Simulated assay, not measured.
Amino acid sequence: MLVASPFLLISMPGGSEWILIILVVLLLFGGRKIPELMRGLGRGIREFNDAKNNVKQEIEEGIKEKDKSSAAQ
C-alpha cells in the first residue's frame, strides 16, 4: 500500500492559480476594499515582527545576565 506524504498533496500554486485567486479576491472584496485589506495585513505582519524581535531581545538579555552572574561567582 502506497501512502502519500501530506507535503506532496499541498504545493505552491502556479501562475494560473494565482490569477484565479486574485480574480476571486477582486470579486469578493472589490477594488476599493483591497488597499484597506493590504494595509491591515501589513500592520499585522509589522506587529508580529515587533513582538518576535521583543521576545528575541528578552531571551538574549536573559542569557547575558545569566552569563554575567555565573562569571561573577
Rank of each mutant, 00 (worst) to 15 (best):
L27H: 15
M38W: 13
I45Y: 13
V55A: 08
M38I: 09
S69A: 13
K66M: 01
K56S: 10
G30A: 05
G42L: 14
Q57E: 06
V55G: 06
E58R: 10
K66I: 01
I34W: 02
F29K: 04
E58G: 08
R32A: 06
K52Q: 05
G62I: 00
K33P: 04
K68W: 10
G62W: 09
S70A: 05
K66C: 02
N53G: 05
L28I: 11
P35K: 06
V55E: 10
S70Y: 04
P35Q: 09
A71P: 00
A71I: 04
I45N: 09
N49A: 09
G30M: 10
E36A: 11
F29E: 01
D50N: 07
I63E: 04
K68P: 00
I63T: 01
N49C: 06
Q57V: 07
A71D: 00
I59T: 02
E58K: 10
I34Y: 00
E61C: 02
N49G: 07
K52D: 02
I63N: 02
G42D: 14
K66T: 03
K33F: 09
A71H: 02
D50P: 00
V55H: 13
E65T: 08
N54E: 10
L27V: 12
G44Y: 14
N54R: 09
E60L: 04
N49Q: 13
L41S: 11
I59W: 01
R32Q: 11
N53L: 07
E58L: 12
K68L: 04
R46V: 12
K56L: 06
E61A: 04
G42V: 15
K33D: 05
G40I: 11
M38S: 12
A71W: 12
D50T: 10
L41G: 05
N54G: 06
E58H: 13
F48M: 03
E58N: 11
A71E: 03
K33S: 08
K33A: 10
E60P: 00
G42S: 15
L28R: 13
D50W: 08
P35E: 02
G30I: 09
K68T: 07
F29L: 05
K66L: 03
Q57C: 02
E58A: 12
R46L: 12
K52T: 07
G42P: 12
V55L: 15
F29D: 03
F29P: 00
G44F: 06
K52R: 13
R43A: 10
K66Q: 02
P35S: 08
G31C: 05
N54C: 07
R43Q: 14
L28H: 14
A51G: 08
G62A: 08
D50A: 07
L27T: 07
G31Y: 04
K52G: 03
L41Y: 11
G31R: 09
G40Y: 13
F48S: 04
L27K: 13
E47R: 11
K68Q: 06
I34E: 00
F29Q: 02
N53P: 00
M38Q: 08
L27Y: 14
G40P: 08
E36C: 12
L37K: 03
I45L: 14
G31Q: 02
